[in-house]
């Protein structure tokens, strides 16, 4: 499942998309601790898969939670550490 968290507003599209099929196979979930803002959390989804999701509190303010985050080679820290390339950002 592609879980799109975020929103669209006058300033653009602010979505983090998580491919849960790729994410479920990863035991470590290093992205959760890599995030300086604690945007991500590990949850058990409706189909009993262990996956990562964007915390409720951040879903409506991703532009402010994620956009200032430093990037390396165009990737956010969570994207860099993800072994499965499961996190895509829209901006």
């Amino acid at each position: 499942m592609i879980a799109n968290y975020g929103y669209k507003d006058g300033a653009g599209d602010w979505f983090l998309s998580i491919d849960t099929d790729k994410c479920a196979g990863c035991g470590e979930k290093p992205c959760v601790n890599s995030c300086p803002e604690q945007v991500l959390e590990a949850i058990t989804d409706d189909y009993d898969d262990e996956v990562v999701a964007v915390r409720e509190a951040h879903r409506k303010k991703l532009r402010y939670s994620c956009n200032p985050c430093p990037r390396m080679e165009g990737k956010l820290p969570c994207q860099q550490v993800c072994p499965a390339d499961a996190i895509v950002r829209s901006w």
């Binding site: 592609i2 799109n4 929103y7």
Partner: peptide, 12 residues
């Protein structure tokens, strides 16, 4: 009926 992707707008 299993979700393959979703998108939600509840900001506005």
């Amino acid at each position: 009926g299993k979700v393959t992707s979703f998108l939600m707008n509840d900001k506005c």
